[in-house]
Design a protein around this nucleic acid. Structure first.
Length: 423
RNA sequence: GGAGAGAUGUCAGAGUGGUCGAAUGAGCCAGCUUGGAAAGCUGGUAUACUCGCAAGGGUAUCCAGGGUUCGAAUCCCUGUCUCUCCGCCA
C-alpha cells in the first residue's frame, strides 16, 4: 500500500510510474488526493469540536468540585450542539477514511527506476545467463514420464487421495525432496538466515499484511469454519511476524528463512504446460525474507539474487536471470528478479525463484517500522525470495540429468540424498 | 467441548466516573560522580493523525467495536484473544 502523504506530494511521479506498471485506473490517484484533502479537513474540524467539548467537560468538573452546581448546569446546556456536531463529523470522517482506504489498496506498488517497460513476459529483460544447456538424446523423456519410469512421483495416487496437483512422492522421490529442503536450509543458515517454522495457516490480518487479501482471495485455500487461509508461500507468516512491530535500527537487516509447504488454488489453469511438476496445488519451498533499511534494500536485493544463483550453480543447473518488466511484476513489488532453469527435455525455461524488493509497500500495510538513533520511526523495507521452490528444481534435475544408467544426482546434493543415482 | 479468571506503556504492576497518556518499580538513553566501572544522584523515555518555519499546540489511543454520561482505563453490551481447571487428543 502506497502512503497517502507520498501520493499527495508526488502526484506526477506516481502517475508516471503507474503507467509503467500498466495500471488501468490512473484517475484513482486524483480521487485519492481529493478524498485525503477532505479527510484532513474533516479531521481538523472534528479535533476542534472535541477540544471544545473537552474543555467544557473539564470546567464542569472544576465547578462541581467547588460546589457551583448552577454554573455547571448552565455549561451542560452547551453540550448537545457540540455532541451533534462531533457525531456528524465523526461519521463523515469514518466514511471518508473507508473510501480512501478502499481506493488506496487498489494501487499497485511503484516500479523501481531500473524496471523495463513492457506488459508481457516476453518483454522481461534477460540480464544474466549461466551454464550449458545439456544435449539430450532423441529419446529423452519429460520429467513426468521419468517419474513414472523410476516410480518416484505418483500423480495418479495424489489424484485419488486429494486431486490433481497433489502428487505423492515415493521412495527416492521423497528422499530427494527431503534432501533438497535440508540442502537449501543449510545453505540459508550459512548465508546468515535464521531458520523459522511458522504456522502454515494464517488469519485474515496476515493475508492483508503481505498483500494477498483482499484482492487475491481466490488464490488461497480458505478454511471457512475457522476463517484461516493455507499459506501460498512462507513469505506470508514470516513477514507477518513483524506486523505492528517497531524494530531497532541496529537489528537490521533481519534475515529469516523457512521451509514450508505452499498451497495455491491456481483456479482454472489446466493444460499441457502445467503437466507434471510444472504447476501444483501443494509444493515445498524454502523462502528467504529480509527486513532492511531503505537505503540498503537494493544492495540486499542484489545479495539475495546472488545467493539464489549460488544454489543453482551448486546444483549445476543452467539458468538465466530476468528483470521483470512493469507489466509482469506482481502487484506489491518494486523490482523483481526471476530465476529460470533450462528444463532440457521439455525444452523450456521454468521459473524456480522470484526475488523481490517491496520497499515500503508491505511494511505500510504491516505497520512494520524501525527506530533510528535520532528516535525517528520510519517504515522498513521488506524483501523476499524463493531459495528455492522444489518442484521445478526436481523437474529440471530429472530431465537434465537423465542418462542410460538412470538419473544422476548432482555432487553437492549427494551428502543429503546419500545416493548418487535414481535408477 | 464444559466451567471460571483475565487483557493497562519496553516489562512488572497500581488505578472502579473528573485533577489519568495514566502512580510506583524495573529496564533503556543522556548527564553528574569515578582513574575506570558498580552503586548513587538528576533528567528523559509511546504511537498515529493534524496545525505550525520552528518552539510548541490540538485530537485520538489503557484488547477491539458499540453504548451510557457534560466527562470513561474505570459503568453497560458485543466480539476477539490469553490463562487456569475438567474432558478429548498427536
Amino acid at each position: 500500500m502506497l502512503q497517502v502523504s507520498y501520493i499527495r506530494e508526488n502526484r506526477e511521479k506516481v502517475l508516471e510510474r503507474l503507467t509503467l506498471k500498466n495500471f488501468k485506473q490512473p484517475e484513482l490517484v486524483d480521487e485519492i488526493i481529493e478524498l485525503d484533502e477532505d479527510r484532513r479537513k474533516t479531521q481538523t474540524q472534528l479535533d476542534e469540536v472535541s477540544a471544545k467539548s473537552n474543555s467544557i467537560a473539564k470546567q464542569i468538573g472544576d465547578l462541581m468540585r467547588q460546589g457551583q452546581k448552577e454554573q455547571a448546569e448552565s455549561l451542560k446546556a452547551e453540550t448537545p450542539v457540540l455532541k451533534e456536531q462531533a457525531k456528524t463529523l465523526a461519521d463523515k470522517l469514518a466514511s471518508l477514511e473507508e473510501s480512501l482506504q478502499s481506493k488506496i489498496v487498489l494501487l499497485p506498488n511503484l516500479p523501481h527506476s531500473s524496471v523495463p517497460k513492457g506488459s508481457t513476459p516476453e518483454e522481461n529483460e534477460t540480464i544474466f545467463e549461466h551454464g550449458e544447456k545439456p544435449l539430450l538424446s532423441a529419446n529423452a523423456l519429460p520429467h513426468w514420464e521419468l517419474a513414472a519410469k523410476y516410480d518416484i512421483i505418483d500423480f495418479e495416487l495424489g489424484n485419488k487421495i486429494a486431486g490433481a496437483g497433489f502428487p505423492v512422492y515415493k521412495g527416492k522421490g521423497a528422499k530427494l525432496q527431503r534432501a533438497l529442503i535440508n540442502f537449501f536450509l543449510d545453505n540459508a543458515e550459512a548465508e546468515g538466515y535464521r531458520e523459522m517454522q511458522p504456522p502454515i495457516v494464517v488469519n485474515e490480518a496476515s493475508g492483508f499484511g503481505t498483500g494477498q487479501l483482499p484482492d487475491k482471495e481466490g488464490q488461497m485455500y480458505h478454511v471457512g469454519i475457522d476463517n484461516l487461509y493455507l499459506i501460498p508461500t512462507a513469505e506470508v507468516p514470516i513477514t507477518n511476524l513483524y506486523r505492528d512491530v517497531i524494530v531497532k535500527e541496529e537489528e537490521l537487516p533481519i534475515k529469516n528463512c523457512a521451509y514450508t509447504p505452499c498451497f495455491r488454488r491456481e483456479a482454472g489453469s489446466y493444460g499441457a504446460h502445467v503437466r507434471g511438476l510444472n504447476r501444483l496445488h501443494q509444493f515445498d519451498k524454502v523462502e528467504i525474507v529480509q527486513i532492511a533499511q531503505p537505503e540498503k534494500s537494493y544492495e540486499v536485493l542484489e545479495r539475495m539474487s546472488a545467493y539464489v544463483q549460488s544454489l543453482l550453480q551448486k546444483l549445476e543447473l543452467p539458468y538465466r536471470v530476468l528483470r521483470l518488466c512493469g507489466g509482469d511484476m506482481s502487484f506489491a513489488s518494486a523490482l523483481t528478479y526471476d530465476m529460470e532453469t533450462w528444463c532440457a527435455a521439455q525444452g523450456r525455461w521454468l521459473e524456480v525463484s522470484s526475488v523481490s524488493n517491496f520497499e515500503t509497500f508491505q511494511s505500510n500495510r504491516l505497520k512494520l517500522r524501525f527506530k533510528g538513533k535520532e528516535g525517528k520511526t520510519q517504515l522498513a523495507h521488506t524483501l523476499n525470495g524463493s531459495a528455492l521452490a522444489l518442484p521445478r528444481i526436481v523437474a529440471t534435475l530429472l530431465e537434465n540429468n537423465q542418462t542410460e544408467a538412470g538419473i544422476k544426482i548432482p555432487a553437492a546434493l549427494v551428502p543429503y540424498t546419500k545416493f548418487e543415482w535414481i535408477n
